[in-house]
Design a protein around this nucleic acid. Structure first.
Lengths: 229, 229
DNA sequence: TCAAAAGTGTTCTTATTACACCCATGG
DNA sequence: CCATGGGTGTAATAAGAACACTTTTGA
């Protein structure tokens, strides 16, 4: 093929829908735009894919620069490429979502409070570009994934209570779950370990703490087990 | 934002994994490459996204040019963008799959036999670029979708037998299904209409023909029904 | 009359749902 | 001693899996 220069005129960006879970609410991390267009508005964190950067490395870099975190759960969701979606030229964006535990101290020290904010997914206001559509698409994808892969734990601290886990699922799936049935199902999978510790400083019976046992999950998975909630 | 020209140097393509179902086998349509690189090899149909073309219009155009078909089921699957995936420069591709009924006469008249071929997904040989990975990703995605959305019908003629439908599911899911349980499940959904016609010219008891009733499906769906096999 | 695929029900097992009370703690 | 959420089991219902024989046709 002759290289047709007219085609090599597009830019590629990634946009990252970063989910966090806080006090029963599923939230998305927005950043204040420091550049035109939409200077000063709140939008999704993202960046141009660099000329010498593989596509899948771009969201990892964006996330690391913004949050200080590495080894984060990341999933490609969809590409958006209407001709007029960006005023500077032809820009295709590839949307990813990631799941982080926002109690992580490394994250809490790194994040810049004045240019970022967490927004409850129920309180989303219109975002610049097609970012609203991107967020909604990522929420839908997360709803599917969270039921079939053990990724909910990524949103929680390493040690968590069963009620926290249930509340997370309720926030993501946007419906109530029955406490006893939920516990039966989760505990029946045998992928949580009871770390023999308890909540402290709560004005009620303290809950047991559990950890997700990734090794066990992978062992069961290789035997044909499928995570499902 | 200043326009940084260094970023507007990428090209965007779409690649289309076109699935067809023939005699119990799930197949993918390959085209002979008429240009370098990989001139003469069999690869996925695809093209550059045109400068004034929305991303989602590109796979529709590719499909229409190749097959003569419009109104085809199309689904975006994933983007692929390793730095070195294309020798001519930075090319990001967005993969789609589509489902067509290859007995369609419009298609059969339009398709060019000498530059296209159907390959059974079990007989795939290595493809140029990252096309093998793209096909495998699309097959996995189709396996998920076909169980939760009534899209299998897109691969069959408008009127089909229950055995053809079952054989299609067996090919896509790559496992045997129980005839009685399959029929119970499908018929229980009440989204097929018995057109009171029968197979002809077969050396066995002729099977009833059915049609997918899209209106009924959408009605049930709006009442909360979820297709699931 | 044979070969080939169509068509059809029941039983057993497993998963899902619905549901209410006592427990441990801090204030 | 009160308020708060933690923790637990059983029964009823629904869904899924396993399984074999008769029917209709063309050759």
């Amino acid at each position: 093929m002759k290289v047709l220069p007219k085609y090599f005129t597009a830019a590629i960006t990634v946009d990252n829908v970063i989910f966090g879970f806080d006090q029963g609410d599923l939230k998305v991390l927005l950043v204040k735009r420091l550049e035109e267009p939409h200077l000063g508005e709140w939008g999704l964190p993202g960046d141009f894919v660099q000329p010498q950067e593989n596509l899948t490395d771009a969201p990892v870099r964006v996330l690391s620069e913004l949050t200080g975190l590495s080894e984060v759960y990341l999933e490609q969701v969809s590409s958006f490429g209407d001709v007029d979606r960006h005023p500077s030229g032809r820009v295709i964006t590839i949307a990813y979502y990631s799941l982080i535990n926002l109690t992580n101290t490394r994250f809490r020290r790194h994040i810049k409070q004045d240019v970022t904010k967490w927004v409850n997914i129920r309180d989303l206001r219109p975002l610049p570009f097609d970012h609203t559509q991107i967020v909604l698409t990522c929420i839908e994808r997360l709803k599917l994934h969270v039921r079939r892969k053990p990724i909910g734990f990524e949103l929680l601290p390493p040690k968590f209570t069963l009620s926290e886990l249930q509340s997370l699922y309720e926030a993501v799936l946007n419906r109530d779950l029955d406490k006893r049935n939920f516990r039966k199902k989760i505990m029946g999978m045998k992928i949580l370990v009871d770390v023999a510790e308890y909540q402290e400083g709560v004005a009620h019976r303290p809950a047991k703490l559990y950890q997700f046992d990734k090794e066990k999950y992978e062992e069961f998975q290789s035997e044909g087990f499928v995570f499902e909630i």
